[in-house]
Write a protein that binds this DNA or RNA. Structure first.
Lengths: 168, 168
DNA sequence: ACCTATAGTGGGTGCCAACCCACTAATTTT
DNA sequence: AAAATTAGTGGGTTGGCACCCACTATAGGT
C-alpha cells in the first residue's frame, strides 16, 4: 500500500517547518505534563521568572514576559490560589502587588523543570550529548537574535499578531 | 530601570523551551505570510504533498498528513475554491475524490516556499550557512525520531492530544 | 438485492492563546 | 483637591486547532 505517513520533502527541507513542527511537539508534551498539575506553560514561565529574579511587581512580570496585563492577572490569580505564589500589596506604592514565590511554588518549579528534562530526553533521543548541547547553543543564539531583531512590529491588520515574547 | 524584557535563565536552559519558543515564532511569521494569501499553514502542507507525491485521493492526504478527514475536506474545499487544486471524482471508485495540483497551485506553492525561506533567513540570521545546515540536520533527525517513536496512537485521555503529524 | 464498510461533507464542540475595553484603586502632578 | 497617570481586574471577543458525530453516496461481499 502506498500512502504511509510521510511528510512532503518540500516541507522537510524547510528549517522553518521543522522548527515549528518539533517545537510544537515539544510544547505539546510539556503542556501535557503541566496540565496534570493544573498549570499552563506560562504559569511555569511566571514561576521561573520569580525564581530567577526574585519577587516582582505584577507589572514587572508583565513587562518581562511580554504578556497582556489582564492575562497576567489571571495567571497570578490562579497561582496564588494554588499556593505557589504570594501576593502582597506593596507598602510604598499600594497600587502595586508584589508577587513572590512560596516554598511550594519553588518545589513545583523544580518538579516542572524535571518534567521538562524528561520530555527533552524523549524529544532529543536521536541526538547524543554533544549534539544536544550543540542544538541548545544554536537555538539559544537564534532565540537571542529574535529577541533583539523583533523590531519592526509592522502591526499588520492581522488580529492575532504574535509579536511579544510569549511563552505558550 | 530594572525590568527589561529578559527571559528567565531557568527557561533558557531548557531546549524544550527554546524549541517551543523559536518554533512558535517561526510558525507565527510563516503563518502571517500565508494569511496574506488567505492560506493557513497546512494548506501549504497539502499543496506540498500534492507537489511531492502527485495527485492523491483525499483519503490518502488524510493519512499522509494525519489530519481529521473532516478538516481535510474543509481545507481542500478552500483550496479548490481558490483554484489551487482540482477535485475530480475517481472514475473507478466514485466515492473517492482525486485531488491534484493546478498550475496556479504549483505557482503559489513555489511562492510560499520562497516566503518560507525569507522567514527562515530572518529567523536564522544569527547563524552562518554551516550552522544553519547543522541545525537543519539536527532538527531533521529529531523530527524523524518523533515520527518513529510516537509509535502507537496511544489515544491518551488528553482532550487535545497532539499525536498525529499536524502541521499547524 | 441486502448488508456492511468506506469516502467525503457539514455542523458543531471544547480548549486555549491573544487581545481589548471598561472599571476601581492608589498615586503623582499641578 | 481636582486631574491625570499607573496598577491591577473582570469580562468578553476572536481565531485557530483538534475532535467527533451524523449523514450521503458509492462499493463490495455473499
Amino acid at each position: 500500500m502506498a500512502t504511509e505517513r510521510s511528510t512532503p520533502p518540500t516541507l522537510l527541507d524547510l528549517s522553518t517547518y521543522l522548527l515549528s513542527r518539533v517545537g510544537k511537539t515539544a510544547r505539546g508534551l510539556l503542556a501535557e505534563r503541566l496540565a496534570e498539575r493544573g498549570l499552563r506553560l506560562w504559569d511555569m514561565a511566571v514561576l521561573a521568572a520569580l525564581a530567577d529574579f526574585g519577587p516582582h511587581a505584577q507589572r514587572d512580570l508583565v513587562v518581562r514576559l511580554g504578556v497582556d496585563p489582564s492575562d497576567m492577572a489571571k495567571a497570578v490569580d490562579q497561582l496564588a490560589a494554588a499556593g505557589y505564589v504570594d501576593r502582597a500589596r506593596d507598602t510604598v506604592d499600594r497600587r502595586r502587588v508584589s508577587v513572590s514565590l512560596t516554598p511550594a511554588g519553588r518545589a513545583v518549579l523544580a518538579d516542572l523543570d524535571a518534567e521538562a528534562r524528561t520530555v527533552q530526553a524523549k524529544v532529543l533521543a536521536p541526538l547524543d550529548t554533544k549534539e544536544r548541547q550543540l542544538l541548545q547553543g544554536l537555538l539559544l543564539r537564534v532565540h537571542e537574535g529574535l529577541a533583539g531583531a523583533d523590531g519592526e512590529n509592522d502591526g499588520q491588520g492581522g488580529q492575532d499578531g504574535q509579536d511579544g515574547a510569549q511563552i505558550s
